[in-house]
Structures are given as C-alpha cells and as structure tokens.
Amino acid sequence: MRLTIWLHEARRAGPAALLAPPAALLLTAAIAMFIQLSGAGHERAERLLLAGLEAVAPLSVAMVALTIVVRETCRELHLSLPTLHLATIGRRLGVLGASTAACCLIYAAGAWLAGYRLGPGGAATLLVWAAPALWLAAFAALVAAVTRSAVLTSSLVALIWLAEQIWATVFVTPALRPLFLFFTSRVGDGPGWAANRIGLLAGGLVLLAATAAVLHRPERLLTEEDA
C-alpha cells in the first residue's frame, strides 16, 4: 500500500515536480559547460554551477511547491475522506523534496568529479542547496495556502528571489542574514556561513509548520465562495 499511494501522489504532484529541478540544473550545467569550452575560465563556470545549486534549483522547487498546494481539482472530495488532506499534500511535497535531493546530489557529485568546488565540500555541501530550497519552498507553500493564488504566490516568490539577488549587500548584514538565500555564491563558505544555513533551515521549518496549521483548517481551503 505504501508504495502504491506514493506512486499515486507522485503522479498527482505532476510532471513538474519530477522534471523542474533536473531541468533547471541541466540548463545551468549546459551554460557552465559552454562558458568553460569558450575559454572564459574555470572560475566563472564554477560560480555559475554554484549559483545553479544555490539559487536556480531552489527557485524551481518553490514554484513547484506552490503549484502543489494551490492546484487540486478534487479538494472537496479529499476533505471528505478519512485520510487527512494535509497528509496528502505532505506526500506530494515529499515527492518534490526527494526528487530535488536526488538531482542536487547527482549534480554536486558530478561537478566535484569534474573538478569544480561547490561549497565547503563533504556533507556540508548539502546545505548549499537544502537550506535555501527548504526556506523558499516553505515560504511559497505558506503564501499559496493562505492566498490560494498561484499568480500572487509566484509573483511574491520571484520578488523575494530577485530582491535578494539585487540587494545582496543588504541581506548580508547581520539583521537580515538568516534570510539570505545566496550566502555561498555571494559571500562564500567562510565565517557566518553555517549560521546563515542554520537560520534558513530553522526559518524553513517554522514556515512549514505555519503552512501545516493553515492547511489543517478545511475552511481555509474551501469556503462558500468556492461553491
């Protein structure tokens, strides 16, 4: 039963859940390869590969996460079933998390084998992508659960992502550092890196808990206006 329900939920999460993260990473890798082959330098290619892992992959994950929360054609039926709808959405997000983790691990391992250094190395490299991906995806899920609008949520996620890219120097300051998604690619993995990653992970977990609280209330998902 366990595997069957997960296979069903993988299908319900949609092809984007399985394809978006690898597609984003493949595109980044292809551009990095092109840069390397065009003679622009190993360092530039490495920076781009790192940005792919820390910035591009989390953005694609967040976009898929918001779609999973917002899009459900059988919402009312789900709410009438003994299986909590929150558990169903959780499984779908779990599928997204697993597919993202697999892609990022393969990508990071491939880059390391090709001689590129993406982050501090070893197990800590996990935090290069896992921390921003968790934070941004959880933020997207929460806004999606509250607003139930894909357009509004994707706009807000894109705005946050872009703002952190443009005003990176502002987000590096101690007050905003726990919210800074691109510390590794903009500052490096030196002092402050671990605290930033832990801050993002903790923030992501809080946002996930808030999302669960919102999704636990059916009237948040289904109101008289829906009918």
């Binding site: 039963m1 069957t4 329900i5 069903h8 299908r11 319900r12 054609t73 059988c74 919402r75 009312e76 039926l77 789900h78 009438s80 079933l81 003994p82 299986t83 169903t88 009918a227």
Partner: peptide, 27 residues
C-alpha cells in the same frame, strides 16, 4: 460515501486508476 456538487476529476487518470487512488485514501 460523498459525491460533492462539483466533483472535479483528474483528467489524466482512467476510472480504474481514479477509483484505486480514492480507495487507498479511504483506507
């Protein structure tokens, strides 16, 4: 057993697959 007024189905599924999925969610 509940049949809502607006039952949106999953268009990519066959009736067998849809019922199998709902059956799992019903335990």
């Amino acid at each position: 057993g509940y049949l809502p007024q607006e039952l949106g189905l999953y268009p990519d599924l066959t009736p067998t697959e849809f019922l199998d999925y709902v059956g799992l969610l019903k335990g």
